[in-house]
Simulated scan of single mutants.
Amino acid sequence: MTDATPWTRDIPPIQGLGLMRLKDDGWGDSDRDPAVLVRTAVDAGVTLLDTAEMYGNEALVGRALGSHRDQVTLCSKFGVYWGESGRFDGWSVRADPHTVHTAIDGTLERLGVDHLDVYYLHHRSEETPIEETVAAMAELKQAGKIRHLGLSNVTVDDIRRAHAIHPIAVVQQQWSLAHREAESFLPTLAELDIALIAHSPLGHGSLTGSDDTPLVHSLARIASNRGMTTGQIALAWVHHRGNDAAATVVPLPGTSSISHLRANIDAAQLVLDSSEIEQLDAGSQIVP
């Protein structure tokens, strides 16, 4: 089964917007109003919006999206569930066909839409073979509930096995100066024409200046010379490496702040020179 339509509405966006931290208490706040955040992103061309059932804010994302639905590539994820008492007693993965079919209906209802552009398996399952999960996700596509299939937090072997059942459009993995494991995925993704959505490009905040490491010192030095923040330099590095990759790469920084969103957009336009790239690569202590 093939799909000739692109996974985005036009060309891949230069950057996505992760909405994990979007909260209801932001309404009316000049820097955190959810609807203004989405409108600012869309106006700037950041049209890939990412959430998940696990985040507990799909209804809020739907309200923030408002009339912009047809202007964005809307993505959500299923399969990861908190324990009964919340986040403090761990989480589990459910990726069986029944969960696939029930989860999508809840997601669509909460978002207030009739389909998703990309639906991800949020995390690989140790219990359900990925072939069974993907076969059920393909049924959602046949029913018109999703346009494209995605995987997150998986292995290269998972990707190949899944893709043999139904074409996978995108894979979401963490990629930053602090976590470069996703680079080993790139040859397979390029071979199979799968895009990489690089989440947490700021290393979950570890690259924004709070950690006292040689890498952060390098970031701070370059940022000072450029008149930028360390986070912007870290994000610009992911854009640089993504542009050099054979596979399509879309960085996905997450924020609920309009000012941070604008800073991230500025970082996407920053071109690092070879000396700066060498310093950052050396500081990451991982050979590409």
Score class of each variant (00 low, 15 high):
Asp33Arg: 00
Thr40Met: 07
Ala41Val: 03
Ser92Asn: 11
Trp82Met: 09
Met228Trp: 05
His122Tyr: 15
Leu177Phe: 09
Glu132Trp: 06
Ala267Ile: 08
Arg32Glu: 01
Val271Tyr: 07
Gly112Leu: 12
Arg160Leu: 09
Pro187Gln: 14
Lys77Val: 10
Thr213Arg: 14
Leu270Ser: 09
Arg94Gln: 09
Met228Tyr: 05
Ala190Asp: 12
Ile265Lys: 03
Ile233His: 00
Val80Gly: 09
Thr255Glu: 02
Leu192Met: 13
Leu65Ser: 06
Trp7Ile: 03
Asn243Arg: 15
Ala95Cys: 05
Glu183Tyr: 10
Thr73Asp: 03
Gln15Cys: 02
Ile258Asn: 04
Gln71Asp: 14
Ser176Arg: 02
Trp175Ile: 05
His204Glu: 07
Glu84Leu: 13
Gly45Gln: 15
Thr2Trp: 06
Thr133Tyr: 03
Thr8Arg: 00
Ser92Phe: 11
Ala103Asn: 05
Ala195His: 13
Pro12Gly: 01
Thr73Val: 08
Arg241Pro: 01
Asp114Val: 03
His240Thr: 03
Asp281Val: 10
Ile233Val: 15
Glu53Phe: 02
Ala41Glu: 03
Ala103Phe: 15
Trp237Met: 00
Asp117Thr: 08
Met137Lys: 01
Arg180Tyr: 12
Thr102Gln: 10
Asp244Lys: 09
Ala41Asp: 01
Thr213Ala: 11
Val80Leu: 09
Gly18His: 01
Ala169Pro: 05
Val100Glu: 07
His217Ile: 04
